[in-house]
Design a binder for these strands. Structure first.
Lengths: 218, 218
DNA sequence: TAGATTGTTAATCGATTAACAATC
DNA sequence: TAGATTGTTAATCGATTAACAATC
């Protein structure tokens, strides 16, 4: 007759209902702060302490976590190692994801050499560019490959995540190739909204947007 | 007796009440899309078209804009040049802000050489680092300066905006120096929450957070 | 005029907070 | 036990959407 509901929840940490994207967006921030607490040698924390460090109310943290299970102990708080592990499972970063980087400009260079991905669930395994002057050149520990080989490589390796660091003018056409080849998540540094079919996620990073957001208050 | 309320609104485009931060955060995205429409040679658009391009409802766009004035014409839509100008005024990017960059690593290199700031209201005018091997070296069109001279330079030039591209371990102490010297807005690429006093704004960019957000859905 | 689209109101929807029983 | 903190409920708060009169 299959698993009981309770068993499944214990085994998979499936959310009871559909959890809103705004809540999912906070989980990586909780996880990051827990990592810092662990590095400080701490073993236990509370929703109050976590909230104080993050500028979030303790009630919100407890409510967010409650969508996925009961991870704390009344009177005590949360075991940092345990909660971190659960968050990694929920976010599916209890494994290492291969990431393909497209664009070998200054930004691609910075990303390929960034030490912050590994240990957080991500490994940049290949870099592609369409500039003949860049193809074949080393970039960090990788060699820049020809963009025309992207579809084949993505399909062969089954890559699901891409980082897009190409000019705005090329972003949509590269995206079409990525999606067509099987990419399901794109971190887009190009300052344009991408058109993608349902089932493909995009996150945007544009420093100009953030700067203009702040100047409003100056 | 001073200005009438209507005159002030026409002259300053002050919001009628306090406008929520979530609305302010969308304005730069509207402005960016309007710029693309203008580049395509378009002169008029509608809340419907803008919404379709951005994946936002037309009602939301009209409501957001209505907090600041009446920028459209019934039956016609919005004049792209006019609305862009108004948004630049509201966001205070109808001028060019000097920006100081702290951190001359790979990321600092990418930021200093990024052509997307100028024309959007920002100009990186100086780069600082504390690494003796980097101080004095050229970075794009700039020369890396010694971090110990940061306070004096910020005060002398009256810089208000900083981009932080230093390791996480140094971010808070650099922030303290920046704030103490007069910086009021920080774009933080270090993966840590910064403690700043009221009146200082921070925006965060951390690719790991965005990637972990997306893996939830994979 | 007829058609289109704004600005705004009221209704809906969703997120956050406050409070507290449960319990470690 | 007494004190502390969770998980959850109900209340509040705020954001989004639908609808439409106004009007270009």
């Amino acid at each position: 007759m299959g698993m009981h509901l309770e068993e499944c929840e214990e085994a998979c940490f499936m959310a009871k209902g559909k959890v809103s994207d705004i809540i999912i967006g906070r989980l990586p921030i909780y996880l990051r702060e827990l990592t810092y607490l662990a590095e400080e040698g701490r073993e236990i924390t509370s929703s109050q302490e976590l909230g104080d460090r993050l500028g979030i109310s303790s009630a919100q943290i407890r409510k967010d976590l409650s969508h996925f299970g009961e991870f704390g102990k009344q009177g005590t708080g949360y075991h940092i190692g345990f909660l971190s592990e659960k968050l990694r499972e929920i976010l599916k970063v209890d494994r290492v994801w291969d990431v393909v980087l497209v664009g070998a400009g200054y930004l691609g260079h910075a990303l390929a050499n960034y030490g912050g991905f590994i240990g957080k669930g991500f490994n940049i395994v290949a870099v592609f560019d369409n500039d003949p002057a860049k193809i074949g050149q080393p970039l960090g520990r990788l060699i820049v490959q020809d963009s025309k080989d992207l579809p084949k490589a993505i399909k062969e390796h089954g890559w699901k995540i891409a980082i897009l660091a190409v000019p705005a003018s090329a972003a949509q056409e590269v995206t079409d190739v990525l999606v067509e080849s099987g990419i399901r998540a794109i971190l887009n540094y190009a300052p344009v909204i991408l058109n993608v079919p349902p089932g493909v996620r995009v996150q945007y990073i544009d420093p100009v947007i953030d700067l203009q957001h702040m100047t409003y208050y100056l």
